[in-house]
Design a protein around this nucleic acid. Structure first.
Length: 201
DNA sequence: ACAAGGATCCTCT
DNA sequence: GAGGATCCTTGTT
């Protein structure tokens, strides 16, 4: 298995971390997911949860880089983020989509709803689905992703080509933040949500 | 103490 | 393409 991404990887510009996360692997127990789509949430960003300063919910965003920030969205979806920037600065990268590499049985079991787990990319293209597949919840906020145990990020082959576009679901943000090209995805893969809004880089 | 709204997903038309 | 589910967080009174 590939080695873990070191702590130093996360201590740099949030946009750089977001783009370099494409192709890396999220590993928990027997599940391995290739990261295919991410979004950057920056300091001084009206779309970022940290925009109003630290709170009980977003505290992990202000913590040291390389740790998980998991929060509950719409009362039912657990969204996985990775804290970036030095301690005291509120910024993070949201994991939007993944391609399953191993652990399909567990993923299917966790994603199974009334109609069963969907076949194909609908299985994991969306941040709520990724959180569900990995079995994370808000208690994972603050968990280090650069050390053994629990949830880890490991090296993987970088994408040959990338896509870029505006972020999803942030209509409440200021126009300049709402339209900022801070969403990154691997090109030429079906494991990406909302592909039509993306353009090749 | 209260009201408002959300970094989504799924189903139905 | 549109709407409901569902409940916690946040800012305000």
């Amino acid at each position: 298995m590939a080695k873990r991404v070191p702590k130093s990887f996360f201590q740099r510009d949030t946009c750089a971390v977001a783009q370099m996360l494409l192709g890396k692997e999220l590993v928990r127990e027997q599940i391995r997911l290739r990261i295919t789509e991410v979004e950057a949430y920056l300091p001084d960003d009206s779309a970022c949860h940290a925009r109003s300063g630290p709170t009980k919910r977003n505290a992990a965003m202000f913590g040291p880089p390389g740790r998980a920030y998991v929060y509950l969205c719409y009362g039912l979806h657990h969204l996985l983020n990775i804290a970036t920037e030095p301690e005291g600065v509120g910024a993070a990268v949201l994991i939007r989509s993944c391609e399953p590499l191993t652990g399909h049985e567990t993923i299917y079991a966790r994603r199974e709803g009334k109609a069963g787990a969907p076949k194909g990319p609908a299985l994991l293209t969306g941040p709520g689905k990724v959180g569900q597949a990995l079995g994370v919840d808000v208690s994972w906020s603050g968990h280090p992703l650069y050390q053994a145990g629990g949830l880890e990020i490991r090296e993987g082959p970088p994408p040959e080509q990338r896509c870029i576009g505006p972020r999803v679901g942030i209509g409440y943000a200021d126009p300049e933040d709402r339209d900022a090209p801070l969403r990154f995805a691997i090109a030429n893969t079906p494991w990406v949500s909302q592909r039509k809004t993306l353009t090749l880089v």
